[in-house]
Design a protein around this nucleic acid. Structure first.
Ligand SMILES: [Mn+2]
Ligand SMILES: [Mn+2]
Ligand SMILES: [Mn+2]
Ligand SMILES: [Mn+2]
Lengths: 158, 158
DNA sequence: GATAATAGTTAGCCAAGGCTAAATTGTTTG
DNA sequence: CAAACAATTTAGCCTTGGCTAACTATTATC
């Protein structure tokens, strides 16, 4: 459908900078981003719950709300979702626990987050900026890029 | 509210890896990500419209739908939003134009996108992977990090 | 142990960003 | 130039992820 682009392909409008990627590749870029956005928040919740348990011994909804700067109602709703997804277990009015699957996700996310954070610091980015950037970037870094970041960081720190 | 964290601060649960950041800083991380997500899609649309105009002479809704792998209805709805935001002008059933403000946003976004893309390639990431990662990462890179990426890329290519 | 403070839940609202199906407009072609 | 085709819009639906306000449960304090 839409031969518009095809028809235009060999026409005027000269090389202004880089060319547009082929449609299929371009589409894949946006699709990948949309997919990342579906899982992003879930990963952040699970990772944070894992961190709270590791550092504090337990994860309470109020702590999550404070750290995420979000209302308790929002957290409560999200907990239900995490429950349905089989990532956490919880009894009403009690603190949270990760399932096996939840723990696995927490560790994977934490590891990836750390690679990105340490990479940014190794690049020379200020610590507090690096923390902010890493929180968003982590969800858009492919395994390939992640491996390269890790190698880079190790190199610069031996 | 919630002295829970305070009370726990000096207690058990030893240094398992990196410590949790202070609550205020941690909150800022997530807030910044939420804010980026509000503007992200808008930036991608405006950038793409700018690119289509530059490379094809005009931007049509069908091309946007194809490149973004999204339905035309979705594009149509978003165009209305961009219109209300003063970023594009459009007459019904005709192709799109960027306002002054829209052009400025397109150029800023394109420049930033290119810095991230070229940085990833300079790092050694494969081109198609770099394109995918850059599409997501670009919205989470601070000015500080961007400047460092640019310096790095120039260094590696002289 | 009653009351106050804190924590968690529920209900109901909203905007954003997807979708499909149906209606409309514009363009190409026999 | 009429019919077919392509492009665009509209209506109506859904999920996600925010919010506030009101309610309920737990915990701390006197
Ligand atoms: Mn993280
Ligand atoms: Mn994150
Ligand atoms: Mn972009
Ligand atoms: Mn993008």
């Amino acid at each position: 459908m839409s031969d518009h682009e095809q028809l235009r392909t060999a026409t005027s409008h000269g090389q202004s900078g880089d060319a547009l990627p082929p449609v299929e590749q371009h589409a894949k870029q946006y699709e990948t981003v949309r997919y990342a956005h579906e899982t992003e928040l879930i990963e952040d919740y699970v990772e944070l719950i894992g961190d709270l348990i590791r550092h504090r011994g337990e994860a309470r909804a109020a702590d999550i709300a404070n750290r995420m700067a979000v209302s308790q109602a929002t957290v409560s709703k999200m907990i239900r979702r995490l429950n349905e997804l089989g990532l956490v277990t919880s009894k009403p009015y009690r603190s949270l626990f990760l399932t096996e699957e939840g723990q696995a996700m927490a560790e994977t996310s934490r590891a990836r987050h750390n690679v990105v954070l340490h990479f940014l610091r190794a690049l020379g980015v200020d610590d507090s900026t690096a923390r902010i950037d890493a929180e968003g970037m982590e969800h858009h870094v492919s395994d390939e890029t992640l491996a390269i970041m890790q190698r880079f960081t190790e190199q610069r720190q031996s």
